[in-house]
Amino acid sequence: MSDPVRAVLGQVLAVAIAIALGALVILAVGESPVRVFRVLFLGAFGDATKIAGTLLQTTPILVCGIAACISLRAGLFNIGVEGQLFMGGFAAAWIGFGFSLPPVFHVLLGLAVAALAGLAWIAIPAFFRARYGANEVVSTILSNYVAVLLTSYLTIFLFKRPGGWSETPPIHESAYLPAIFDFSRLNWGIVIGLALAVGVWFYFRATPRGYAITTMGSNPKFAEYGGIDIRRQGFAVLLVSGAVGGLAGGIEALGVHRRFMEGFAPGFGFDGVIAALLANGHPLGTIVTALFFGALRNGSLLLEVDTNASREIITVIQALIILAVSAQILMRRRADSTAGERRWKF
């Protein structure tokens, strides 16, 4: 079997095992798995609104997934996508409600500032990684908590809309990232996400620098020997990854919520990282896995209403997928350990 086919089969097997175990959990809570999966499917793809809803859920997972893919390619692990998303979301909302600008320019500026905010947020972990070799997994995870609390502080103490829930004022209409259909909040963010996925795939496949980064990801010693400055490239890769994470927040703020509030978009950064892992760090594969998670999420909303199973069953299935995928990665690393110096194999 060729390598890519094996990789895809491995992931499909991981998902199948997770779903089978999920079915056991559903049985244990006294529901019929067939019925639950049927409602789940109807909730995700039952009609046009449901499909749009699925794509709406897919958007942040996809963009966060691309952010994760970029770092995984270089053998680096940006688990701070969540924090970058919060920073980007707040920054975009701030541009949206704080400034009056002409329509198209306003949106573009909002998204650009969101990306900048994400980039700024990963700059410190990226610097310590490049300069001192500090483990970026730990530093990016930790920066998530700071981002969530910092944006919450900014929202509550500096920019709170008078009265009501802790949220900023709504953004100006000129900053709206427009909806695609009038029956859903689905917006052009999904198109941005798809374009990013294709662009990133093309970049890694067809440009010299993309090749250098891929080489560095699969074997840093070899890359260094070949004349690649892995510190510098790693620094740049993390910055770009963070910028995409920030962009994900900008899309949510300008396209969906049109304001920033406490509990803005919890968990999407992590969902994105999982989607990227499940796709073996492949940008086009991430489109498929993000859609899968988006469908699970959106389907679970109908599940909660129409069956006696809790929507949390989806969280269980997702967790099982993570377990199955990480088991696989570990097995491959072991088989691989004599072959090279890879930190992660992607």
């Binding site: 809803g53 859920q57 942040p60 949510e252 509990g263 919890p266 909660e304 209403v305 929507r311």
Partner: peptide, 13 residues
């Protein structure tokens, strides 16, 4: 749950 993105769909469902 706690995801603001879900609320509108929940009400619609």
């Amino acid at each position: 749950g706690n995801r603001a993105l879900d609320y509108e769909e929940q009400f619609a469902n």
